[in-house]
Design a protein around this nucleic acid. Structure first.
Lengths: 211, 211
DNA sequence: CCTACCGATCGGTAGG
DNA sequence: CCTACCGATCGGTAGG
């Protein structure tokens, strides 16, 4: 609201980008034609090019918006004082869960279709993703050293956190008798409990810093 | 070995199917051309049709082979006596982890490209998947009733188990300083510990049947 | 297993 | 924002 006033110019571009995210998600990047996209916003294919540069550009925007949002969250989190590594991991998990709940189209496209990125961009995207995962892996390693996280292979823990949330794809449209809030709590709970070190027996609050 | 003798007829078809799984995984179903596929087995596109019916048929075979293997494993497991629900869930988890380690191409195609299945088949595939997930959900519900599994939303637990293993996609080709065996143990451990009910404090063996 | 080729569709441009 | 159209590529067939 309030941003829908004067949506005449500029709003069209956003409308196309939103429709593209949805179509790329449903049919894949190479399975989506510009005529599909044009039809879904009610114009002819040629008219799209008054608003966008290329099909590749649409994909690029989606992928890097998601990548940027992830690294921004992580940077903000690193700058927040007073959080132990387990709480940091919970925050990261919750951030991903919410992205998958609230922005499914974009997140799925960035996850599944990034391989269709053209070449300086594909490498850049993979690089940023690698950096991100290494930072999260660092937090996990720290958690293990502090005794807050179970002593598992840190690399495997990152992979598991990042992919477990993909289950949310199935939840969408399926039975909504599980609410978004309940889904979020169950999944964060499940993941955080999977990694938390419970040797001391505490179960629901943050673990103490063992020597 | 021993199956590569007399690979003249029939072996060609298998070679094409294997190459198709790989290409469909790397470039997507609609991103893969029959000329790509032909080139990867060293013949012309037209020659493929002496061995296969259609591009769609190749996808269909991959998807249903995976679907069948999953439901066969589950049926065998249900017929195995003496396993509590937590052990059954561990067996299912381990089965999926191994599929993702050993048969990445096929599993990824069945997971990501099934949407390109044509119509009586797409519905059939989705139906079988729904049935499978409901059965697993049933085991989880039973585990919760018996006190072996933490009291979470069962539907969310199925989703999480089935998607957590997708992290293995990243492991492939990346740094193999984590061995397949170590990956398998860490991931099964992480998932099973995430769902196990630890109210009694036991940590590494199977939980007792609480009243 | 090949050459030659089919009609359809692709992303995108010209010009208004 | 449209009509008209470009060259390239698509899955697949004919015929040998």
């Amino acid at each position: 609201m309030a941003r829908n006033i004067r949506t005449r110019e500029g709003g069209r571009r956003e409308e196309i980008a939103t429709a593209a995210a949805r179509l790329f998600r449903e049919k894949g990047f190479s399975g989506t034609g510009m005529r599909d996209l044009a039809g879904s916003v009610g114009i002819e294919a040629a008219s799209l090019y008054n608003h966008i540069d290329s099909k590749a550009g649409l994909l690029r925007e989606i992928c890097f918006r998601i990548a940027d949002d992830c690294s921004t969250h992580l940077r903000d989190l690193e700058a927040t004082p007073g959080l132990d590594s387990l709480r940091r991991l919970e925050s990261i998990t919750r951030f991903h869960v919410r992205m998958w709940i609230e922005r499914l189209d974009e997140v799925l496209v960035a996850t599944n279709e990034f391989r269709s990125l053209e070449e300086p961009w594909l490498e850049k995207f993979l690089h940023e993703r690698r950096i991100y995962m290494r930072q999260v892996e660092g937090i996990i390693s720290q958690g293990i050293r502090e005794g807050l996280v179970r002593p598992l292979e840190p690399y495997v823990v990152v992979l598991t956190i990042m992919s477990a949330v993909r289950g949310i794809e199935f939840w969408h449209r399926s039975r909504k008798n599980v609410s978004a809030a309940s889904l979020e709590e169950s999944m964060v709970d499940l993941i955080v409990n999977g990694i938390r070190n419970d040797t001391d027996g505490t179960s629901d609050t943050h673990g103490p810093a063992l020597p």
